[in-house]
Design a protein around this nucleic acid. Structure first.
Length: 621
RNA sequence: CGGGAUGUGGCGCAGCUUGGUAGCGCACUUCGUUCGGGACGAAGGGGCCGCAGGUUCGAAUCCUGUCAUCCCGACCA
């Protein structure tokens, strides 16, 4: 991937954009603009409300939206930026099918998981009865293609991308375009002959993503992420920080560490050591919680081993009971647990659930002493289980395993043990990091840095997939020594439609949206205050024409509305620059207003044009 | 799938308790007066009251079922 497109990158912007747009100017009277004064009842977050009120989107059915002309312009502007940066990072644009044959997904082993039960893939049968799925992602298609076309290491590396509609039958669509069932996504896939080449493309994508988001005028933070169902090694998410975000992220103030809480690691707070003593059992009636146990016995949570019982459904159909030991002041991170389990068992984990009395009953088991269970709960409790494995899998978090002496349940009702050590109860179980990192804990990059938490909207995700898909789909190339080898793969996504809404979430005020100029539907809106006044109308039309000629993306509000209505609408739809042609039109003067700052200048028309041209040039890209 | 809520013109809502054949604000149309921050007056148009069944002389209203939407959770490249 020689970067000979770098030169194009230098003058990408204004010479490129005009080609992308059929119209760069418009009259509000012809725009089919319908704004709403009331907030639609089913919109919860601000960005969703504003997009609906501004006439950018309309809901067609749950999680499915129509992009109205203003929105489509925004999406095309984002798309253009993404295309430019992907091209200049050396990737090739393609367009892959949306209908995928089931066979490919069966081959990768994902058909079942993606369609059965609560699977997220829309799927259907054609007239021949062949099964098809609507693509939620394109690893199968692209890997298969690469396997057919790329035969030699000499053809590598290759990076392909596409921008198109994807489908996911989300269990709970919400927040407008944030989590919709049909959405626009840019996805890219790279193919390499070795891991280090993959890493360098991954790095290049990391950089390209940072450029893309900054050109789109949004603040993002890159965080370490769990690679989830898609699998693979390293992965990073790009988050727009916003209260409405669905993810919790942890960041060290100096910026040296940032991670999704699903994945985050930290230095746990130190525990309060328990003095050495002879093991004793003590009565703990009504002390089933860590809190009550501490309160009644002058203990601290970090002196107690908390035991969590769970059952895991494994892909081979086995159901494995788990005993997890955590330090009392720590919480379980189920994502980490799932990852530990699948690598430990070398199989996919389908489901993890707590063991409850109901579950015991349906297994035909007696009640267990919940609330006072210790890490050494006896395996013989499982003897009569109908479908569960007959032996517990025992795991501990590092924080629990490193305690010398501790308090734990005695495996009898209302009874705990004090001054216990691991030797006494059969040794330390397999130990992993399965705890939830939390705000206030020290960063692993620098102990003096205390992690801070905030919410984020994931708008991009890059992965080093490795050979997972190329192996399962049998996509190989011939390496330098003439041997067949699966591709090293990376994949890189950006939620285009989600990004557009996240930009609104990050850029708005009480009056409406404040689009960053690079992705605004128009750069300038001219408001003719009173269409009845000939001087105003004529001057407005003249200015409109001149800005069009100057290649400015301009909108003219020529409606026969009162000025107030037009001002409100202009604020709502969030065009970055507004020119009001009003009272001073007779003396050839207009007002120039910057949407996000509300600064007003009275200028003659030529000066206004000059200023707009220079402001837009410097702001754009 | 579990918990909660709501379905009445394009949008926001009232009416339902106590059954009598649908109303308000915004938007829309026409006319007039207004005209720099969502004007005023007058006159209009538009509703299978989510759907189906039941009770009743009569159902938006009561009963049963069903569907849809939204919120919380589970789920989620």
């Amino acid at each position: 991937m020689k970067n000979d497109s770098f030169i194009i990158g230098l003058f990408y912007d204004r010479c490129y954009l005009p080609i992308c747009f059929v119209f760069r100017s418009m009259r509000v009277s012809r725009l089919m603009l319908v704004t709403l004064r009331d907030i639609p009842a089913d919109a919860e977050i601000t960005s969703h409300q504003l997009l609906l009120r501004g006439g950018f989107i309309r809901r067609v059915t749950s999680g499915i939206y129509a992009y109205m002309p203003l929105m489509w312009k925004v999406l095309k502007k984002i798309t253009a930026i993404v295309q430019q940066e992907m091209d200049s990072a050396g990737s090739l644009q393609t367009l892959l099918p949306q209908l995928h044959p089931a066979e490919l997904w069966e081959k990768s082993g994902r058909w079942q998981g993606y369609t059965a039960g609560e699977g997220i893939m829309f799927h259907l049968k054609d007239r021949q009865g062949r099964e098809l799925g609507l693509g939620p992602t394109h690893e199968e298609i692209i890997t298969n293609l690469a396997g057919e076309i790329l035969h030699s290491y000499k053809q590598l590396p290759v990076c392909l991308y596409q921008i198109q509609t994807k489908f996911r039958d989300e269990i709970r669509p919400r927040f407008g375009l944030m989590r919709s069932r049909e959405f626009i996504m840019k996805d890219a896939y790279s193919f390499h002959s070795n891991e280090s080449d993959l890493k360098s493309t991954y790095q290049r994508m990391d950089n390209a993503y940072k450029t893309i988001f900054s050109r789109c005028g949004i603040d993002t933070v890159a965080v370490d992420a769990d690679s989830g169902a898609i699998g693979g090694a390293a992965s990073q998410e790009f988050m727009v920080t916003a209260e409405a975000g669905e993810d919790l992220i942890l960041i060290s103030p100096d910026g040296s560490y940032a991670a999704n809480q699903e994945k985050a690691v930290s230095i746990p707070s130190p525990h309060e050591p328990l003095p050495e003593g002879d093991p004793i059992e003590f009565n703990t009636q009504n002390q089933g919680s860590i809190e009550s146990l501490c309160l009644e016995n002058e203990l601290l949570p970090s002196q107690i081993i908390k035991v969590i019982l769970m059952i895991v459904q494994i892909e081979n159909g086995e159901i494995q009971p788990l005993i997890l030991s955590l330090r009392g002041d720590q919480d379980l991170n189920e994502i980490k647990l799932a990852n530990v389990l699948s690598s430990l068992l070398k199989k996919d984990v389908l489901d993890i659930q707590p063991i409850t009395s109901e579950k015991l009953k349906s297994e035909g088991l007696q009640e267990w002493p919940f609330g006072s269970i210790g890490p050494d709960l006896n395996d013989n409790l499982l003897e009569k289980a109908k479908s569960w494995n007959k032996q517990f899998l025992r795991l501990a978090d590092h924080t629990a395993a490193s305690l010398e002496y501790f308090v734990c349940g005695a495996n009898k009702k209302n009874s705990h043990r004090n001054f216990v050590n691991w030797k006494l109860i059969g040794g330390i179980p397999l130990t992993f990091d399965i705890r939830q990192a939390k705000e206030g804990e020290a960063s692993i990059t620098d102990k003096s840095q205390k992690l801070k938490s905030c919410r984020g909207i994931e708008i991009g995700h890059i992965f080093q997939l490795g050979t997972k898909y190329s192996e399962s789909l049998d996509a190989n190339f011939t390496n330098e020594s003439g041997k067949q080898e699966p591709f090293w793969m990376g994949c890189y996504g950006i939620g285009i439609s989600r990004l557009a809404q996240a930009a609104v979430e990050q850029n708005h005020d009480n009056a409406g949206i404040c689009w960053p100029i690079s992705i605004a539907p128009f750069e300038v809106i001219i408001v003719i205050a009173n269409m009845q006044v000939k001087e105003q109308k004529d001057l407005g039309e003249k200015l409109y024409l001149k800005l069009k000629q100057a290649n400015v993306d301009v909108l003219l509000d020529d409606r026969e509305e009162r000025a107030g209505v037009k001002f409100k609408d202009a604020d709502l739809i969030g065009i970055p620059w507004r020119v009001v042609v009003g009272r001073d039109a007779t003396s050839g003067k207009v007002e120039l207003i910057k949407r996000n700052k509300r600064e007003t200048e009275l200028l003659n028309i030529e000066t206004a044009i000059r200023k707009l041209k220079s402001e837009i040039m410097t702001n754009d890209g």
